[in-house]
């Protein structure tokens, strides 16, 4: 079975310390005011009295979905689901920064990089994994709320956790993208993902983006050609639409499901 890197998050362990966010920011040189990951909270609810009230903190990042609406939204093929590891990636060299993918993500996992003028997002720390390290957010977490690995490898921690525990995936009912972040037990909040917006090119191709494309074509044509050449000769998998069946027929949850 194909590799599908994934996270199993026990959000009841999260103390909202922001360690994962800071680690990611440094590791991936995420510019000021932007983040590749987050910690959501359900806020305070004292309607049942103060004494026994509880809050939840829910860490997350790009869900590396099996049905990645962002990939469908990308006009250039820069956003793709990597067949090698199941990670949804952005190829910097092909991204024209049009931003179509940003509203196509129900999780708000993407942002436009103000300097690079491309869209940036979590790639499960591709470069760290290449040298054998875990993603920055996973290794730094004080309470080790995030577990990481290949869910299709039955010997992995994450596969075992999925097998032994009740988990949920946080999805918008209208845009179930089959995310690859699983949450243990009763996580909260659940209602925050938005409906994925399909791109309407006119809307997203604003003035500056058009100029940018001109720049790409005009000034940097060599780079684009080089990319094409690389894809032709090195035989990279065609970045683009991934089959929906990569999870091997695992049930898709919108609510809670027991994994047996």
């Amino acid at each position: 079975m194909k590799t599908q890197l994934a996270m199993v998050v026990d959000s009841t362990l999260c103390i909202d310390c922001k360690g994962c966010m800071a680690a990611c920011k440094v590791e991936n040189k995420v510019p000021d005011g932007h983040w590749r990951n987050w910690i959501k909270t359900d806020g305070v609810d004292f309607s049942m009295g103060e004494t026994f009230s509880r809050m939840h903190f829910q860490p997350g990042n790009c869900m590396h979905c099996d049905v990645p609406t962002c990939v469908h939204a990308c006009p250039t093929g820069a956003t793709y689901k990597d067949e090698k590891d199941g990670v949804v990636k952005v190829d910097d060299r092909l991204c024209i920064g049009c931003g179509s993918c940003i509203p196509a993500c129900p999780y708000g996992a993407r942002y436009r990089h103000p300097e690079k003028k491309i869209v940036d997002k979590c790639d499960f720390c591709d470069h760290r994994r290449a040298r054998g390290d875990l993603p920055a957010c996973v290794i730094t977490c004080p309470t080790k709320a995030r577990a990481f690995g290949d869910i299709n490898d039955p010997d992995s921690d994450v596969a075992r956790m999925l097998k032994d525990n009740k988990t949920v995936r946080v999805v918008n009912r209208e845009s179930d993208t089959r995310p690859n972040i699983y949450y243990m037990g009763a996580t909260a909040p659940l209602n925050w993902p938005v409906k994925a917006q399909a791109p309407t090119p006119i809307r997203w191709w604003g003035d500056w983006a058009k100029q940018l494309v001109w720049a790409v074509v005009g000034i940097n044509a060599l780079g684009v050609l080089a990319m094409l050449g690389k894809q032709l000769f090195v035989n990279d998998p065609e970045p683009g639409h991934e089959s929906d069946s990569t999870d091997g027929g695992k049930p898709v949850e919108t609510e809670e499901t027991d994994h047996e």
Binding site: G19, M21, T143
Partner: peptide, 12 residues
């Protein structure tokens, strides 16, 4: 416990 918090990461 093999962790580094937000401040620890912000040492840079």
């Amino acid at each position: 416990r093999g962790m580094l918090c937000a401040r620890g990461n912000a040492g840079i």
